Simulated assay, not measured.
Amino acid sequence: MNKILSFSLLVLISFYSYSQKNKTIEKVDIELQKCLDDTQNNMLNCTQVYYTKMDEQLNVTYKKIKNKLSKPEQDKLKNQQLAWLKKRDQYFIKVKTDTAKQLDGENSSQDYKMICAHENALFVRDRIIELEKVYLKN
């Protein structure tokens, strides 16, 4: 129960620590919190769905931006995204390692998987916000 409360607090803090205008992200954040608040739901499933939706939104955002750019700008964006993907892969490995350490070596429990999925989703979420800030200045 303590882990559940701690995780819910972490989720709430992460929502309010970002200032962004993306209504899709806000909607997905709210959906996650509602899912986590419903005690009938599996928290691991909630966070895995959250990650999937963030990953999908990153793809939508990337394509939207790419379509507005000239060919040289598209190439630059592609190279930046490829570099980010390498950084993402390294970060995901670090999340797994750090989370296992926090859980005393446990790396197969639902708590472990839930924390990793949530941290990974936030990393992807940050990339969406970063891309929008740089390329979709409205």
Score class of each variant (00 low, 15 high):
N41P: 01
Q20C: 11
D126W: 04
V134P: 00
Q20P: 04
L122M: 10
R125K: 12
K71A: 07
S14H: 04
T99E: 04
R88S: 08
D126A: 10
L136G: 10
K63Y: 08
Q110C: 00
D111W: 10
S8T: 02
R88V: 02
D89W: 02
I115R: 03
I13H: 07
M54Q: 10
F123A: 05
M54D: 01
A117G: 08
N138K: 14
T39H: 03
N120H: 01
Y50E: 07
N67L: 15
L58S: 06
K3N: 05
S14E: 14
I128K: 02
D38C: 01
F15P: 03
K87G: 04
Y18P: 06
N138D: 12
M114F: 00
D126H: 05
E130N: 07
D75L: 14
E132Y: 05
N22Q: 06
N22W: 09
I25L: 15
K94M: 15
Y16T: 14
F123L: 12
N41A: 02
M43L: 12
R125E: 06
Y16W: 14
R127P: 05
K66N: 10
S70F: 05
N138C: 10
K68T: 15
Y62L: 12
M54N: 08
K113F: 07
K133E: 14
L136R: 10
Q57E: 15
L103E: 02
M1G: 04
D111L: 11
L10P: 03
N79G: 09
D89N: 12
S14C: 09
N138M: 13
T39K: 05
T52A: 12
T52R: 10
Y50L: 05
I65Q: 02
V11E: 07
M1H: 01
D29A: 06
K64L: 15
S70C: 06
D104G: 00
N59D: 15
N45S: 11
K27Q: 12
P72A: 11
W84M: 08
R88I: 02
K66Q: 12
H118N: 04
L77G: 07
K53A: 03
V11R: 00
Y135C: 10
K113D: 09
Q110N: 13
C35N: 03
M54G: 01
A83D: 15
Y50K: 00
E31K: 12
K71Q: 09
L10R: 05
S14V: 08
T99P: 12
H118Q: 01
A121T: 03
Q80H: 11
D111S: 07
N45R: 09
C35P: 04
K78C: 00
K76P: 07
Y18M: 10
E132F: 06
K86T: 05
H118M: 07
Y51Q: 05
Q33G: 04
L9F: 05
N67C: 06
K86M: 03
T52H: 09
S17N: 13
L69D: 11
